[in-house]
Amino acid sequence: MNGQVNQWAGQPLPLSASCWIGNEHKGQLCIRLAGAVAAVKAAIPIMSAPVGAQELDPLDAEIFWNDLREQKLSSISNLGPDQTLYRLALPAACGPLQLPNASNEIAFEWHGQQRWIKADGDDATFTAIKK
């Protein structure tokens, strides 16, 4: 996911936001395009072809991006009894993190630079994050 999104980010495309929800191998990529109508319309086929994307209804898209911003998506908000939600700001090229007892599901924003990870709120997790 990060590779494709970073490739798009390096091109003159109207990419204004991206979000990956899932695990390292399987999940859902959502992108938001913004700018001149002609630029957005021209970018849709270029960006949808490599990933088999489909355009969301504008109302559904608005709900998704609002819920993401407010941390209301189930992949972020549904915590287990001993879980803590960690928000990490990382370099875009940062690879997968190995956190003890972390949830298999993760949410990436900002082309992989912001990650929402559910894991235990213990000293082992804090130590692993600091490394």
Score class of each variant (00 low, 15 high):
residue 18 S to D: 10
residue 19 C to Q: 09
residue 19 C to W: 02
residue 19 C to R: 09
residue 20 W to P: 06
residue 20 W to D: 11
residue 22 G to W: 06
residue 22 G to V: 04
residue 22 G to C: 08
residue 23 N to I: 00
residue 23 N to W: 01
residue 24 E to S: 09
residue 26 K to Q: 14
residue 29 L to A: 04
residue 29 L to N: 06
residue 30 C to K: 05
residue 31 I to R: 00
residue 32 R to P: 03
residue 32 R to H: 05
residue 32 R to N: 05
residue 36 A to V: 08
residue 37 V to Q: 14
residue 38 A to R: 07
residue 39 A to D: 15
residue 39 A to L: 07
residue 40 V to C: 09
residue 40 V to M: 11
residue 40 V to T: 08
residue 40 V to A: 09
residue 41 K to F: 08
residue 42 A to P: 08
residue 42 A to L: 08
residue 43 A to Y: 01
residue 44 I to T: 05
residue 44 I to H: 04
residue 48 S to F: 04
residue 48 S to D: 02
residue 50 P to Y: 03
residue 50 P to W: 00
residue 53 A to L: 07
residue 54 Q to M: 05
residue 54 Q to R: 15
residue 55 E to V: 15
residue 58 P to A: 14
residue 58 P to V: 13
residue 60 D to A: 15
residue 61 A to N: 05
residue 61 A to S: 13
residue 62 E to A: 15
residue 62 E to S: 15
residue 63 I to A: 13
residue 63 I to K: 11
residue 63 I to E: 13
residue 63 I to C: 12
residue 64 F to Y: 15
residue 65 W to M: 12
residue 65 W to P: 12
residue 67 D to W: 10
residue 68 L to Y: 07
residue 68 L to S: 10
residue 69 R to W: 13
residue 71 Q to T: 14
residue 72 K to P: 02
residue 72 K to L: 15
residue 74 S to Q: 12
residue 75 S to Y: 12
residue 75 S to M: 11
residue 77 S to K: 07
residue 77 S to R: 10
residue 77 S to F: 01
residue 80 G to R: 14
residue 80 G to P: 01
residue 84 T to K: 12
residue 85 L to E: 11
residue 88 L to C: 12
residue 89 A to G: 09
residue 90 L to V: 13
residue 91 P to L: 10
residue 92 A to Y: 01
residue 92 A to F: 02
residue 94 C to Q: 13
residue 94 C to H: 10
residue 95 G to T: 00
residue 95 G to E: 08
residue 96 P to D: 06
residue 97 L to Q: 04
residue 101 N to I: 01
residue 106 I to A: 09
residue 107 A to L: 10
residue 109 E to K: 01
residue 110 W to H: 13
residue 111 H to D: 08
residue 111 H to G: 08
residue 111 H to Y: 10
residue 113 Q to E: 13
residue 114 Q to I: 13
residue 115 R to M: 11
residue 115 R to W: 15
residue 116 W to R: 03
residue 117 I to D: 12
residue 117 I to C: 07
residue 118 K to I: 01
residue 118 K to M: 03
residue 119 A to S: 11
residue 120 D to A: 14
residue 121 G to F: 08
residue 121 G to Y: 04
residue 123 D to G: 03
residue 123 D to Q: 05
residue 123 D to V: 06
residue 123 D to R: 03
residue 124 A to D: 11
residue 126 F to T: 06
residue 126 F to G: 02
residue 126 F to D: 10
residue 127 T to V: 04
residue 128 A to W: 05
